Simulated assay, not measured.
Amino acid sequence: MIDWQRPLGGTGLDVSAVCAGTALLASMPKAFGYEVPEERAIATVVRVLAGPITFLDTSNGYGDGESERRIGKALARAGGVPEGFVLATKVDPAGADFSGARVRRSLEESLERLGLSRVPLLYLHDPERISFDDATARGGPVEELVRIRDEGLAEHIGVAGGPVELMERFVRTGEFEVLITHNRWTLLDRSAGPLLDAAAERGVAVVNAACFGGGILAKGSAASDRYAYRTAHPEVLDAVRGMEAACARHGVPLPAAALQFSLRDPRIASTVVGFSRPERVDESVAHADTEIPEDLWPELDALLPSSERWLH
């Protein structure tokens, strides 16, 4: 059985092993292929707030703020943020503007939508959209995030992005307490290994997102041919089919194995799972608690696609 509540690195915060992802709740059919009605989104967040998940992740940029607006309505319906619950959001640019001033406005917009005066955790989101030098320059987003933390508008700050070498550069600045990596530490991809090591070395908490590779490890190869938001390479599809067969032999749902691959890594504090309806919350909790025989893991490792298929 997994440890359900865990320390979030050195922040002093405790979070659940599963973090509720809310990009889907913004209803972005161009990105995810389907719409999510507002009432269903609100009901999903209300279900999350009821426990046992105590960690929720959103962003200013999800659906142009629609995710945060819906979360704000759910918080109002539930009577506010439960005690001990950690709500995190991310600052996003307006067009090409990722200046320090834009970071400040992004947070102000988020607080207004959420109905909050401060957040426990605030991330710099997808900094690969600008250069590292611009991000860390005077007057840039990193400097402004540090100022926001010093002012107490965010208790802690993190960085959330993709390319592992770039994310490691941000980790090594010493400014960030939490890292989100996505799609790069899964049953199908191990490219974030050095990044996880660097974060552990620096005492930076790791939150691992997209452990289902954008959905295929949750839906299965018969229902999806998309991996990491694009059409999957034949080698990746073959790997998924092999993993489905291995899990079936052991009587384990593939989504449970994909989730627990992340949950069992001691370098990872929490794993983000996206929810689009209330019942998915209970399904993910059940997958986290599913008993998985140890001899399944080497079988799955043997099916890992070649590093040429990793995202890096």
Rank of each mutant, 00 (worst) to 15 (best):
P141T: 07
D14W: 08
Y227A: 00
L145R: 03
P37S: 12
H182V: 13
V159I: 12
R184Q: 11
I53G: 03
E39A: 15
G274D: 02
S106N: 06
P305R: 10
P82W: 01
G33I: 06
L87C: 07
P293A: 09
R169M: 08
R69Q: 10
E168G: 11
V48W: 01
D134P: 01
R6Q: 12
A17I: 08
A78D: 05
T11L: 01
V36K: 09
E201H: 11
E279I: 01
I53V: 15
L49R: 06
A258T: 05
L304T: 10
L179V: 09
E109H: 10
A200T: 12
D225Q: 15
F55D: 05
R40S: 14
A218H: 14
V281H: 10
R129Y: 11
R277M: 09
F212T: 07
H182T: 10
R202N: 07
C247W: 01
V159W: 02
L87Q: 04
G214H: 08
M167D: 01
W4D: 13
F176Q: 04
P141G: 07
C19F: 01
V236K: 01
P163C: 04
G162V: 04
V240F: 03
E155P: 00
R184T: 13
G115F: 06
T271A: 02
E151S: 09
A239V: 02
Q5A: 12
D126V: 02
T54F: 00
L263K: 09
D282M: 05
I148Q: 08
A137L: 11
K219W: 14
E83T: 10
L153Q: 11
A223K: 14
S284E: 14
L124W: 01
G215I: 06
D126W: 06
G115D: 08
R40Q: 15
R149P: 02
C211I: 11
S131N: 05
S16W: 06
A218C: 08
W4F: 15
G21F: 00
C211M: 12
D14C: 13
R184H: 10
A20Q: 04
I130L: 15
E177D: 14
G215T: 06
A198P: 07
S306V: 01
L145C: 04
D97V: 02
Q260A: 02
A94S: 14
V164D: 15
P52M: 08
